[in-house]
Design a protein around this nucleic acid. Structure first.
Lengths: 337, 337
DNA sequence: TTGAAAGCGCTACCAT
DNA sequence: ATGGTAGCGCTTTCAA
């Protein structure tokens, strides 16, 4: 059994409340130097570790925060998580992490479970099939930061990339290379980030007078197999695209597979830009042009905003922070056929 | 403020203990059907969520487990974590996750913090610079499972890949292709998994009469830059190796960079086998032969073993489970020059 | 400067 | 079948 305040009290022949005061008490809590020393030594000797559960129950403060992501094994999310974890450590917090696998019911469940475990705040990359739990949290002024995905119907604390602009610029670059028929391999369409990317694409299509056909926007799933199937569809169009922008991490792998199996060459047959970086982007059979997101920065801004709201106790206005992506041009794009 | 048992009790005009019995009570706890119904309805109406902190304090059971990994953004670890997270969900548990960044002091800290937060068990991929905290946990019979890294000086619950065998087989295959001079790009050498890989390498070197030189085993760091520098050293040997086995996830990226910058061709100038899979392995400029680890399986076996020990309450013998890796031969290996 | 008592929300035991 | 009480370990009043 672990040492408690009571144990130390018995050992020192003092009252538990005195021990608590010595160990937690602010400096101005007048304790005799003798007592303080005695208690500190006993605590060390008995390997005292405060029971955070008891403190949490008493103080209504757990120094724990919850992080809900779609998939912790997706590098896009895990790199954000890593940074958040590091900064949580620096601030004396711990992280409860869960993956929804884009399942809205799991997300509800995690929110409830985390709250019942007393988290001081929540960071969510929502599956975005629904928003009622988010609104409920906001109604209760519970400290909350959304990451990467916005609900346009209400305001919230949010850290997000400049998806629309990035997408516009990618299309623009391809247009400058002479491409008229540019396709988008989309992830789940109702996601805010995906919508914005499509918005940027459509705006550029209009501005540069490119082919504007519904079938050039393909896909609605986020898994590798979705990327594979949807790319196959694009490659098998009567008039296939000469360039492709891939809006997601896992579907990029599926797309590469489909392109390879179709014996298409990048960029000779098709130019490709990925909407997410990978450590391997440079070393692919054709180095992949990518849009890189400042994931560490996203993580840092997210947790800092959350801390701000935790400390302010619900009196702060919502903040929306947009971070800049970067376009990395590599061999996977070339002039249109 | 959230609804408590007391609130429901007041609402139903019953005693809090009665509410608790209805809500938590086993079936055989004789409650009148009328009361049960009344309570259930009130609980739903008032959106009652049990306060897990209070339950944990009372029951000494948190339904939370701790997972300590070196780096949650490394796909090797995050895929294990993802599976663990999924299965924790199925079992009604939540996960506290932290990254040590291979820093032993952080690891100590996380163990203490997680314990003080009442986790029911701990899964650790240890930095392995020390083991005293592990031994301490074992002495207290605290439920604990180690993953991927063993301490050879004492027994423990452990899930691990057949690193030695995998390494041996990789070298064997290269030897069959005529390679005499095979190098290992090693990660942190004191890690059990790395040691075993080197053991397998050395055994094969002996069995197949290959060049046995100290300088053919290079590296002692796990970061991309380490892989880059150590590969450069190998490529710049008076007599460089004709084949390379890369023993780590991030250093693979560094090695690819070094090979590319040195204008070496894979496999013409150097054959390469990676000791870890990536989703992109197949799509690299030369598809990379890899040893793939059954990460989901590792995750599943780990948490199941942990649950077993949590439920048995420290009366079980330690278990060591070795899982099989798989060699995937791709274009990155060819005959020796 | 220290002690005593109350209470966070819950459950388990003992009454009735 | 339900109520009352105690107590998990801690902190925070209020008293002494």
């Amino acid at each position: 059994m672990p040492t408690t305040l009571k144990d130390i009290a018995a050992y020192c022949d003092l009252h538990p409340s005195t021990i608590s005061r010595v160990l937690r008490g602010k400096e101005n809590l007048r304790i005799s130097e003798k007592t303080r020393k005695k208690v500190m030594e006993a605590a060390k000797k008995l390997h005292y570790q405060p029971n955070q559960i008891a403190r949490t129950l008493r103080l209504k403060k757990s120094n724990t925060i919850g992080l809900i992501v779609p998939d912790i094994s997706n590098p896009f999310f895990s790199r954000i998580a890593h940074k958040i974890d590091n900064l949580a450590y620096d601030a004396g917090y711990m992280l409860i992490v869960s993956s929804t696998d884009e399942n809205q019911d799991k997300e509800y469940h995690f929110v409830e479970e985390m709250i019942s475990r007393g988290v001081d705040g929540l960071m969510i990359i929502p599956a975005q099939d629904d928003d009622k739990h988010i609104r409920e949290l906001q109604k209760e002024k519970f400290p909350l930061v959304l990451i990467d995905r916005d609900f346009e119907t209400f305001k919230a604390n949010l850290i997000i990339s400049d998806n629309k602009e990035a997408s516009y610029n990618a299309v623009k670059r391809l247009a400058e290379l002479g491409h008229k028929r540019i396709a988008v391999l989309s992830g789940r369409r109702h996601l805010y980030s995906i919508k914005k990317r499509i918005d940027g694409y459509l705006e550029a299509v209009k501005d540069f007078n490119l082919d504007n056909e519904k079938e050039l926007i393909s896909g609605n799933g986020h898994r590798i197999i979705d990327g594979y199937n949807d790319t196959m569809k694009l490659l098998n169009l009567k008039k296939p695209p000469t360039a492709l922008i891939i809006s997601g991490n896992l579907i990029t792998v599926g797309a590469l597979k489909a392109i390879k199996e179709s014996n298409c060459e990048i960029p000779e047959d098709i130019s490709v830009i990925g909407f997410t970086d990978s450590l391997y982007s440079e070393y692919l059979s054709t180095p992949l042009s990518t849009i890189s997101h400042p994931l560490q920065d996203i993580g840092e801004k997210s947790i800092n905003l959350l801390f701000k709201h935790i400390n302010a106790k619900g009196k702060l206005p919502y903040e929306k922070i947009i971070v800049k992506t970067q376009l990395n041009f590599r061999d996977s794009i070339g002039p249109a056929k």
